[in-house]
């Protein structure tokens, strides 16, 4: 008994740093942010600890509502496109021979060795007027003049998909890798066409990977704003950039805090709704 108690104390000491870190650097700032969002701005930089809901009411102004709407739309669109591109990639990667699989893996990882900012500047070079993309299309005669894609919505979407795709690929891959291919063979044997076998067996069994991939894509895409800033110029304004602007340029900390709280709440809400939907989904009903 004594030994057990001792072990418990030891375990507590071992995990304590993690708890302290979480409390000090995650929960603490979160609480402070929540408090801040109900305070009042004072002077150029300051805040006053008066309770007010004015910050939240301000979000209801059409300008800001539109920013939220834009963010959600972009996040949903990016997630959908990432799913379309990343799922087949991850799925077929799991079917490759181990050697080719490793090559694939390395090719996916290499871009992460350079800063994401650098890679975005790469996209700028590709998308700018008369850049690589325009040059390519024009030399093939598809377009007569430059499309000038840089600083447009499609450029932002491409940037988002590019940045988030690896997360989807990896989570689908890890799921598909565990898939027992004899199940697919069994379904073919029982009379399923390749497509049918995929829909009724492979897809349901790689759902966990797809789900986590969607979460891993959707959550960051709500907050990613530097892609929109760099590839979208000032045309595509997202919540993230709005918060940053309020903070760094407008010095309105309480309002920035309120925006952050709403963003957090929205993201959580989406996740919650998503969990509800995916849980109640009858997988066998697909057959």
């Amino acid at each position: 008994m004594k030994n057990k108690a001792k072990n418990k104390a030891g375990a507590l000491i071992a995990v304590a740093p993690m708890y302290i870190f979480t409390l000090a650097f995650i929960l603490g700032p979160l609480v402070y942010m929540l408090l801040l969002s109900f305070w009042r701005r004072e002077g150029e930089w300051g805040v006053a600890a008066d309770f007010t809901v004015r910050n939240y009411l301000r979000i209801l102004e059409p300008v800001f509502l539109e920013v939220f709407f834009n963010s959600i739309r972009l996040a949903l669109l990016s997630t959908a496109l990432v799913t379309l591109a990343g799922y087949p990639f991850g799925y077929f990667m799991a079917k490759l021979s181990p050697k080719r699989r490793n090559i694939c893996m390395v090719l996916l990882i290499i871009p992460f060795w350079t800063s994401s900012l650098m890679r975005l500047y790469g996209w700028m070079i590709i998308f700018r007027a008369n850049g690589l993309f325009d040059g390519f299309l024009m030399s093939l005669g598809f377009t007569a003049e430059p499309l000038k894609l840089l600083y447009t919505y499609p450029a932002v979407v491409v940037g988002m998909v590019y940045a988030l795709c690896p997360f989807m690929i990896y989570s689908v891959y890890s799921s598909a890798e565990k898939l027992d291919w004899s199940l697919v063979e069994a379904s073919r044997d029982l009379g399923a066409s390749p497509f049918r076998a995929f829909i009724t067996v492979s897809l349901p069994l790689t759902m966990p990977g797809l789900f986590s991939g969607i979460i891993l894509t959707f959550v960051p895409s709500m907050g990613l704003y530097f892609i929109a800033d760099i590839l979208g110029g000032n045309k595509v304004v997202l919540v993230g950039s709005l918060i940053q602007e309020q903070l760094m340029k407008g010095h309105d900390w309480p309002f920035a805090a309120a925006l952050s709280v709403i963003l957090l709440a929205l993201t959580s809400l989406f996740l919650l709704a998503y969990r509800k939907i995916t849980k109640s989904e009858e997988v066998e009903g697909l057959v």
């Binding site: 004899s182 063979e185 069994a186 044997d189 066409s193 390749p194 076998a197 997988v283 066998e284």
Partner: peptide, 19 residues
Amino acid sequence: PPDKRNVNMVFQNYALFPH
């Protein structure tokens, strides 16, 4: 292809659909 043959197989590992 296997789905067009009127032949069925019992797999060594059973290959029952876990879902």
